[in-house]
Nucleic acid binder design. Structure first.
Length: 1249
RNA sequence: GGGCCAGUAGCUCAGUUGGUUAGAGCGCACGCCUGAUAAGCGUGAGGUCGGCAGUUCAAAUCUGCCCUGGCCCA
């Protein structure tokens, strides 16, 4: 037995989340994703996608949705195109953010506190923390339809992953690319730890620091001194150089008399009483006057020199703790020359003339510029390692023993004494308090951070800079400007990668150092390798495991256990100890191309890696430029050089680029004002609002700004209301999240100033729902709301409008603009785009299903269509549009241009809905199966089936719904179990008819212009007119239009349509000749404007006549006559004023508006039919119900109706028409124009259900 | 402070190598249609193309400076 209807009816309710859940169930139970992984033969081409691992220690937000949606699109597309596509998931699990999160939980902070708490339990907590939100991630991932294998996801803390990294590091170690140096970090001295940039950003506050102007006397001329300015006197004992800007002028000045005290400042201290040891000072010319004012002296210029001329000058440092010991220290440069190691002037471009003196005190151990200046000096030396850094400060923030009386004292406490000492030596020129922003520890906000050089391990990335740049050049960056812009720039300015971190939860650096000789180092690449050197190396971990069997096996390669691992030095047999550091977690993620397979240690990993390297495509947000995009590219460049590729027997020596061919750089998701979504501001739309239900949770208030809520009312801020896409006065359901049964209906009211995520609720409603008020009141931050006690939170939900769902969310990101632009995200915007595409498509789909079911039409049934070439023009046009769109969408997706592809699909659906279906509707209304109807069904059906496949990568849910109903249900030939196992549509080249597309566009414009004429002249479309004349600019179009004459007549409701070009002149049109600037500009230059004026002032019709006669136009430019060829001018027709006509790009459309009696009669009949149909609708009749009619009208209308009984019967599905005074229930009296009439209508025969 | 990106209609965005009436969709107004009907169609109003200078016969488009927002880095 066959189904009663060919297709499942399409629900009229738009509840996408509900339908999508059904599809999710289907995918799950039928294991469609798993099948998609094995659907292609093993010799099919592979499309390689790398998952950039997210850190799962927070709930996913809209930015993550964007990334996942983009990552899903191309694998789906490529799989349908016939590729094998692996989709291995991954998790990023290490790093400072994880440790910070755990520190917060434990309410501890700093290295010492962690050690006190115990590294072992701390690390265990880190593991826990990392997967706390995994289920949130998994459910969002699934809900979005992001297909990725989470079961065998790679995890960066896993042993095999870590061992892969060790292997890579060992390769670098062997190549001499791993070395020890110093890195300047923001250092929290009290806590003994470095802070991440994000943490530093949290702790800025304004403070007043001592700022001092200090003289550095020249060694060879102590009467003359350089003047420097600093706000950190405590760094002066560690001074190494003085830096000038080579290109700017410096003045040598003599110090004159004290300046007179400024007027109006009575309490001014006597002008600088200090004695200066120097009589002459050196200062940047631009800052000389400012310096004079600061030190209160007249300064007379003696000479002026370029900064470059000062370079090399030696000076006496302000404190001689080091100079005392190392006065004679000199160092050899690579160019053979010798130079003083310290206390000389160097040239640096970073020196600015904004503040200070234009001469910068450089303490290489403190400050990043300082350190890099030092490094560029080192780079010139034969043996840079020989030079020991000057640093008078210990990691705990106190002076070292070398600093005499300051030894052991907290640096900031010494600022004053240091200044005094300088003053007494005559070196302090001025001092004052200086207000500026300075970072403090965000947890202990009395502790200032200091910039300090710490010992660190580096990767010598600069050695392979050229390789990295070559790799980058070969990458297909989207948008392109990243290549030479942000990323290329970063690579050009590449500095060595500071790899190590003095932390606990990370991949341990696999360098072991010999206890007998520091020069002996060893970098084992695996646990097994270490055990070969010492079978008992991991005894400590094994014992711990025995004690606690729950202990994760992966922790064998982690702190603190790994720090116990020792083995004999391969060179001298003394015991080796591991260095204490862990490594930057960006190194983790950058190793994923090979580490995800455990390469090269794991069995089978060689083939897997070889197969899937490099990636065809990756995509992450723009902030990954210096993160993952960099670490992936740099590590591959460093590790996989040609030699290693050969050694590891990769099947072919890779060409550029490595390790990804295309990278889509995503913009950020912003709120509707274009501001970045942030948790603390609360200006984000939680993904659930789009995916699941339109609801938000609020902290409960009882009163604010003197506003209280009446019972049945709830007060919220404007932004929250807009966030739910609601307007004031609407009722929402209010309930508690954990007790959603107890509900109240509350009306929304806006309180403008109310912050986000708090709501004012009346006493009665608070009681009824068992709520209590948040004690923090208006200070409740959005980010705190979910953490409030259950009773202090209320959910407001718009139950009437279902959420847009997953397809809509996905579509929003594909269709709202190119993915590299920032998107303005909101529920409203998502709904807008949904309506524009999926809902429109669904309407067409629904239209088709309704009629196919009425007629019992089946795609594989008996009512066969003709070949496309023989079908009606409209069908051929639509088939052509479909083929063109298929071609364009494929092309765009092949080039990773999502937005282009999405825009193309929008156009296609628009063409199908707003033109094909609109024009074809009547063809489906006819009885039986005339050939034309069969053709129409087949055309529409083909379009829908093809579209269901075209849209599969974009909106996988709705695509599946259509496919299941249109393809699977009727058991169409070639049907697969799921659209996602089917092939992406091929381009039907034969169907493409470019000329037809062009003509149809013109025809549509003609119609549009004609309707415009009707509107302007207040001529209803219902009123037939005698004729339309279309004067085309282009003769070819005029010829082509004949094919569309019926369409144009019908749309414009005219009896006749005439198409003509140029020569025609019935008085309604005029000609205008315009210069073709593109052609004339280069030839005439300036005179093109004169030419324009000449053509404007001439009579267009005469010019045209001249053009027709001579094929050219002679223009008088005053001094000269110029002949313009057909190429150089453009002739257009325009409507003359006073005619019912409109001008457009195709030409002019003229309507003949004279109404004859016959035309008026026709109009009346159409009017009557319209009223009858309106009655049918009022009575909510089915499309196929038959009715009985009663009509009573004045003589004219009566005559018309009598004459058209058959027409009325067929149009209105009437079985009988009674011309009598209506008697049926609900009959109406009305009038059309001047014709009064009464109408009765009742159901005669109910259509079969 | 430096680098990169963006700024076009009320909103979301197009706008080809500079070429002369700056486009689309949504929203709005008016109207149409009524057998896709909590749909569909048409017309219209709305823009000193962020600002100021410059190059050019011609600038939304090229150059410089500035303003606003975003990101990265100091």
């Amino acid at each position: 037995m066959t189904d009663p209807t060919p297709f499942e009816p399409v629900s009229t309710e738009l509840d996408f989340p509900r339908y999508e859940r059904r599809i999710l169930d289907f995918w799950k139970s039928a294991r469609i994703f798993e099948k998609s992984l094995t659907a292609r033969d093993s010799d099919a081409p592979q499309f390689v996608f790398y998952e950039g691992p997210p850190t799962a220690n927070g709930v996913p937000h809209n930015g993550h949705v964007l990334t996942r949606v983009m990552k899903d699109l191309f694998p789906r597309y490529q799989a349908m195109r016939g590729c094998r596509v692996l989709r291995k998931g991954g998790w990023d699990t290490h790093g400072l953010p994880v440790e910070v999160e755990v520190e917060k939980e434990l309410r501890i902070h700093g290295k010492a506190a962690i050690e006190e708490y115990g590294v072992e339990p701390f690390v265990k907590r880190c593991i826990e923390s990392v997967f706390r939100y995994t289920s949130d991630w998994e459910s969002v991932t699934e809900r979005l339809g992001f297909w990725v294998s989470l079961d065998d996801a790679y995890v960066t803390y896993h042993r095999s992953y870590v061992e892969s990294e060790w292997w890579a590091l060992r390769e670098l170690f062997k190549k001499g690319l791993l070395y020890q140096g110093h890195k300047v970090v923001w250092w929290w001295a009290q806590g003994g730890t470095a802070l991440s940039a994000a943490e530093v950003g949290l702790g800025y506050k304004e403070v007043a620091d001592p700022s001092v102007y200090v003289a550095f006397p020249l060694l060879d001329d102590p009467e003359t001194a350089l003047v420097i300015w600093t706000t950190t006197p405590w760094t002066l004992p560690s001074n190494g150089y003085a830096a000038v800007k080579p290109g700017v002028d410096y003045d040598v000045v003599s110090v004159g008399d004290a300046l007179p005290a400024k007027k109006g400042k009575k309490s001014q201290k006597p002008q600088n009483p200090r004695e200066f040891s120097a009589k002459k000072l050196i200062v940047a010319s631009a800052l000389r006057e400012a310096l004079g004012a600061k030190i209160g002296r007249e300064l007379h210029v003696l000479e002026t020199r370029k900064g470059a001329a000062l370079v090399g000058t030696r000076y006496r440092p302000p404190f001689d703790y080091y100079a005392r010991h190392r006065d004679e220290l000199r160092v050899k440069r690579r160019d053979g020359s010798e130079v003083d190691t310290w206390w000389r002037v160097i040239g640096e471009e970073f020196v600015t003339l904004d503040t200070g003196t234009g001469i910068v005190h450089i303490a290489p151990a403190f400050g990043e510029d300082d350190h890099s200046a030092h490094k560029s000096q080192l780079a010139q030396y034969e043996d840079p390692e020989e030079v020991e850094l000057i640093c008078a400060i210990q990691p705990d923030g106190t002076f070292t023993d070398i600093a005499g009386s300051y030894a052991g004292r907290w640096i900031k406490d010494c600022d004053k004494d240091l200044s005094n000492e300088l003053d007494s030596k005559g070196l302090l020129l001025a001092s004052e308090l200086y207000k500026h922003e300075y970072p403090f520890c965000w947890r202990a906000d009395d502790d200032p951070l200091i910039q300090m050089a710490r010992p660190a391990w580096f990767i010598r990335t600069t050695a392979l800079k050229d390789g990295a740049i070559a790799n980058n050049r070969a990458v297909n960056w989207l948008p392109e400007h990243i290549k030479e812009g942000r990323f290329g720039d970063f690579l050009q300015n590449n500095v060595d990668w500071a790899l190590s971190r003095e932390r606990f939860w990370g991949t341990p650096l696999n360098v072991w150092v010999c206890s007998a000789d520091e020069e002996h180092k060893h970098a084992p690449a695996s646990v097994a390798e270490i055990e070969e050197l010492n079978p008992e190396a991991f005894a400590h971990f094994r014992a711990a495991k025995e004690k606690d069997p729950e202990l994760s096996d992966h922790l064998i390669v982690h702190k603190p256990w790994i720090d116990e691992v020792s083995f004999p030095c391969p060179k001298c047999q003394a015991a080796m100890r591991r260095v204490t550091e862990v490594i930057d977690c960006w190194f983790d993620s950058g190793c994923m191309p090979f580490a995800q397979w455990g390469y090269p240690h794991q069995e089978g990993s060689a083939k897997r890696f070889d197969d899937a390297f490099p990636a065809d495509f990756i995509s992450e947000a723009i902030d990954q430029t210096r993160g993952w995009f960099y670490s992936l590219l740099m590590i591959s460049t460093l590790v996989f050089d040609e030699e290693l590729q050969k050694k590891m027997r990769l099947t072919r020596v890779r060409e550029y680029p490595l390790p990804y061919k295309t990278c889509i750089v995503l913009g950020h998701v912003c709120d509707k004002e274009g501001k970045k979504e942030s948790k603390s501001k609360g200006n984000y739309t939680p993904p659930d609002i789009i995916l699941d239900r339109v609801r938000m949770e609020f902290g409960v208030l009882d009163e604010a700004y003197g506003e209280t809520a009446k019972p049945g009312e709830v007060l919220v801020g404007r932004e929250d209301l807009e966030g739910m896409d609601l307007v004031e006065g609407v009722a929402v359901a209010a309930y508690r999240l954990e007790n959603s049964d107890a509900r109240r209906e509350l009306r929304l009211r806006i309180v403008k100033k109310l912050p986000r995520r708090v709501a004012i609720v009346s006493k009665e409603d608070v009681e009824a729902l068992g709520l209590s008020v948040v004690p923090t009141g208006l200070d409740t931050k959005p980010v705190e709301v979910p953490r409030l006690p259950a009773g202090e939170r209320i959910v407001l939900e718009d139950e009437k409008t279902p959420a847009p769902g997953s397809d809509a969310f996905r579509w929003f990101f594909y269709a709202s603009g190119p993915p590299w632009n920032n998107t303005r995200h909101s529920l409203k915007n998502v709904r807008m785009l949904q309506k524009d595409f999926v809902v429109k498509l669904r309407n067409v789909y629904s239209f088709f299903v309704i009629y196919a079911n009425i007629d019992g039409w089946r795609p594989n049934g008996p009512n066969e269509a003709q070949p496309v070439a023989d079908r009606a023009l409209l069908d051929r046009w639509m088939s052509s549009e479909l083929a063109i769109a298929t071609r364009d969408v494929r092309r765009s997706l092949d080039e990773f241009l999502v937005y282009d592809a999405a825009s193309r699909l929008v156009d296609l659906v628009d063409a199908l809905s707003n033109w094909y279906v609109r024009r074809s509707r009547r063809r489906f209304y006819s009885d039986g199966f005339p050939q034309d109807k069969c053709d129409a069904y087949a055309t529409l059906f083909d379009c829908l089936v093809t579209i269901s496949k075209l849209i599969a990568p974009f909106v996988p849910f709705f695509s599946e719904e259509m496919y299941q109903n249109l393809v699977v249900r009727p058991k169409l030939e070639g049907a697969r179990e799921s659209v996602h196992l089917d092939d992406y549509p091929d381009v039907d080249e034969a169907a493409i008819d470019a000329a037809l597309a062009h003509q149809m566009r013109a025809a549509r414009e003609v119609v549009s212009l004609g309707l415009g004429v009707r509107t302007v002249n207040k001529l209803k479309v219902r009123q037939p007119l005698a004729r339309v004349d279309v004067v085309f600019n282009d003769a070819e179009l005029a010829g082509g239009a004949e094919a569309h004459v019926e369409l144009i007549k019908d749309e414009l409701n005219v009896h006749e349509a005439r198409f003509m070009t140029g020569g025609h002149d019935d008085g309604a049109v005029a000609f205008r000749v315009k210069p073709n600037f593109r052609a004339l500009g280069p030839r005439l230059g300036k005179r093109v404007q004169q030419c324009k004026k000449a053509l404007e002032s001439a009579d267009g019709n005469e010019l045209y006549a001249e053009f027709v006669a001579d094929g050219a136009i002679l223009v008088d430019l005053g001094d000269e006559k110029v002949s313009l060829s057909g190429e150089e001018v453009q002739v257009v027709v325009e409507a003359k004023e006073g005619f019912a006509a409109a001008t457009g790009a195709v030409g002019v459309v003229v309507l003949h508006t004279t109404l004859t009696d016959g035309l008026v009669d026709e109009g009346l009949l159409r009017e009557l039919l319209s009223r009858i149909q309106a009655r049918r609708k009022d009575l909510q009749l089915e499309f196929t119900d038959r009715v009985e009619l009663e009509i009573e009208a004045g003589p004219r209308l009566d005559a018309i109706a009598q004459k058209s009984v058959d027409l009325i019967k067929s149009e209105a599905l009437a079985t009988e028409i009674h011309f009598r005074t209506p008697t049926f229930d609900g009959h109406r009296s009305s009038s059309v124009g001047e014709e009064a009439f009464s109408l009765g209508l009742r159901l005669a025969v109910r259509a079969p259900a």
